[in-house]
Simulated scan of single mutants.
Amino acid sequence: MSNPDGRAYLERTKNYCWRGTGNGVDLNRNFDWEFGQKGSSSLKTDEEYRGTHAFSEPESRVFTDVSRSINLDAFVSFHSGIRQIYIPYADSKSKSTKRKPANSVRMLDLARQLSRCTKHTFKYGQATNINTYSADGTIFDYMAGQRKVPFSIVIELWGDSEKHKGKSCFDLFNPPSGDLKAVIADIHSLYVTLFSYLMDWKASRNSTSQVSIKRFSTLDEPPFLTLTYIIVAMVLVALVLVIIQGRLPFFSWCIARRRLINLRSLSTTFSVNVLKL
Rank of each mutant, 00 (worst) to 15 (best):
E162D: 10
G20F: 00
A8H: 12
W18N: 08
L248R: 10
K276G: 08
K123P: 09
V66D: 09
N15G: 03
L236K: 10
L266Q: 14
P88W: 02
L227M: 11
D171R: 01
V154C: 04
E11A: 03
I82G: 10
R258H: 12
R19K: 15
L27D: 10
V149M: 05
F270V: 14
I130Q: 15
N273D: 14
D46L: 05
V232Q: 01
L27Q: 05
E34R: 11
S96K: 15
L194S: 02
V274W: 06
K119F: 03
R205Q: 13
T208R: 15
A74F: 04
L190M: 04
T228D: 06
Y133R: 15
E48D: 13
A203S: 13
T128F: 03
G125E: 04
K202I: 10
A256Q: 13
D200R: 08
D186C: 02
I230P: 01
R68V: 06
S168K: 01
S209I: 14
T52K: 11
F122I: 02
V232I: 15
K98L: 08
T138S: 15
R50C: 10
E48I: 15
K14H: 00
H79E: 03
I244C: 14
E59H: 10
D160L: 14
Q113K: 07
E162F: 01
E11Q: 05
D160P: 01
T13I: 01
P176N: 09
I261G: 08
C169F: 00
G178N: 04
R259W: 08
F170G: 02
H120T: 12
D141N: 12
V66C: 06
T208P: 07
T52G: 05
K14W: 00
I87S: 04
H188P: 02
K98G: 09
S265Q: 13
G51H: 05
P223D: 02
N23A: 15
S217N: 14
G81T: 00
